[in-house]
Design a protein around this nucleic acid. Structure first.
Lengths: 136, 136
DNA sequence: ATGCACCCTGTAGCAACTACAGGGTCAAGC
DNA sequence: GCTTGACCCTGTAGTTGCTACAGGGTGCAT
């Protein structure tokens, strides 16, 4: 299949596919006589793996390691588990941070009563960190 | 005060302070005879406002609008409230997304039983989106 | 033959910094 | 008076993960 078909089949932007190839995440496909890229099922599966991993928030470098492992099925899989576990921890920490943030923002937004900027509680809150309840 | 002092006083990287000046978020300070930047209290307050806003996740462009409002205290403050409210909504959406992600990752990580990559549940889960419980 | 959809390469842009390279300034200590 | 070290300057390039051109070639239908 050509790059446009692969793009539609995986929901990936054409430029992104070429970008993945450029950084070595996807192997270079065969070319037609007209120099068009020509992909097979293995390419599509690999791209699906990459997209799915990205959707789950893994970085390109993490995906590189995961793909490497997937290319060497005889290796121990503890590295994959380590990457996923660390990523899960990061996601949990991010959620915790954003939750604090949300509470702070809720307090700030809730205080606005309209009027002019001189009396604005939003701007006042941003000016003075000491009004905050949690560290950020 | 010199840039190093301002940096310590606000917990901002020196390069970041110069960056904010370059993009017009902070005004150009006076210079000493040796061409060193020289800041006063107004600068420090403005930088504190910017840092605090960044910590709360506002973008540079949002901060530009908020500063603009803060510079014109006679204006209506509904713009500030609109920016903060929209930002709060974005944070809430991000939390919701990350929560789905966390649940998916928890399922993936929890399934790993060790062994070789060929049998790895982490890699299997990444290969096959259909194992997922939620959209992402 | 001409229009259109598709493909190619290469480069530059985005956000919000961060990290140099290569130089100047200033006060303290010998 | 000379060195050492901490600080400051400008300008440019790197980071992440794409995305968006510009400027050109290909393939098929009308």
């Amino acid at each position: 299949m050509k790059i446009g078909e692969l793009s539609r089949a995986t929901g990936t932007n054409i430029e992104t596919i070429r970008y993945y190839e450029r950084i070595g995440l996807l192997p270079e496909p065969h070319r037609t006589a007209a120099n068009y890229r020509s992909y097979g099922d293995a390419h599509r599966a690999r791209l699906a793996f990459v997209r799915h991993s990205r959707e789950l928030g893994f970085t390109i470098e993490e995906i590189r390691s995961l793909l490497d492992l997937s290319d060497h099925p005889e290796r121990e899989c503890d590295e994959a588990d380590r990457i996923a576990t660390r990523h899960l921890e990061q996601v949990e920490e991010k959620i915790a941070q954003l939750t604090l943030l949300r509470d702070e923002l809720t307090r700030i937004v809730g205080r606005c009563r309209g009027g002019v900027a001189a009396d604005c509680r939003v701007i006042e809150a941003l000016s003075d960190h000491s009004h905050c309840e949690s560290a950020h």
